[in-house]
């Protein structure tokens, strides 16, 4: 099952490359770099019941994104991004939250962005998320046997304001989705994958460079 993950990502990358190749080229030659800081909220990775029902989810995590991309034409941009998000994985019951382990989520994605107006754009993303538990305590967690790499798909929207010919500041909202399970969960008998929805908000600072005039 896990061997399908990179294959799915590769398929997505190839699809986006084909789209990029097929698009008009009159605005090519411009690259842009973006740094984004924000926060991410994730739905539960696991729902289980031992004596009482509980969920296991990452706490709201600060995020840092770095993206590099190219202008395909006046309407479309293609970007490759990596996101770092780190927070505590927590077990939540009616009685409160108990931290389990610090958890980093690395997300790599390819985004195709479409300009909707001079100040707004929307994007679709595909990629993969890699969960990386920290510390020595992972032996007693759902990540004891593996920390999976999982394919994601997502959508996003941005409003932006140009503050100089090369600099743009933007406000981003993004959503992505993936299915989650681990070998330890399956070994325990939690055999179905769980859908995980993640929402993030962030502020982006972008700089563009033209190696030739469009």
């Amino acid at each position: 099952m896990e061997c399908m993950v990179p294959r799915a990502t590769i398929r997505g990358l190839v699809a986006l490359q084909l789209i990029a190749t097929a698009l008009p080229t009159n605005a090519r030659g411009q690259i842009f770099l973006e740094l984004r800081g924000g926060a991410m909220l994730s739905s539960a990775l696991v729902r289980d019941s031992i004596v009482e029902a509980f969920t296991v989810r990452p706490a709201v995590a600060p995020t840092i994104d770095l993206a590099v991309g190219t202008v395909l034409n006046e309407q479309y941009r293609l970007a490759v991004a990596v996101r770092w998000a780190r927070s505590d994985l927590k077990r939540s019951t009616d009685g409160g939250n108990i931290p389990i382990i610090p958890l980093t989520a690395w997300t790599g994605s390819v985004a195709l962005r479409r300009r909707l107006s001079s100040w707004a754009s929307a994007q679709g993303t595909i990629g993969a998320v890699k969960y990386a538990p920290a510390g020595t305590g992972r032996n007693a967690t759902l990540f004891r046997d593996n920390a999976p790499l999982l394919p994601i798909v997502g959508l996003g929207a941005r409003i932006e304001h140009r503050i100089s010919p090369r600099l743009v500041v933007g406000l981003d909202a993004a959503y992505d989705f993936h299915r989650f399970s681990t070998l330890a969960l399956r070994a325990e008998g939690i055999t179905g994958d769980r859908s995980v929805h993640r929402f993030s908000l962030g502020i982006t600072l972008g700089a563009s460079y033209a190696d030739k005039k469009p």
Binding site: I50, G124, V153, L155, G189, I190, G192
Partner: peptide, 23 residues
């Protein structure tokens, strides 16, 4: 197309079928 993509995402999300272990 956008509506179809969003609907596909929501359908994927609806396919949740984790089984609770027997303890």
């Amino acid at each position: 197309r956008s509506v179809a993509a969003l609907a596909s995402l929501l359908l994927l999300g609806a396919c949740d079928s984790p089984n609770a272990p027997d303890r």
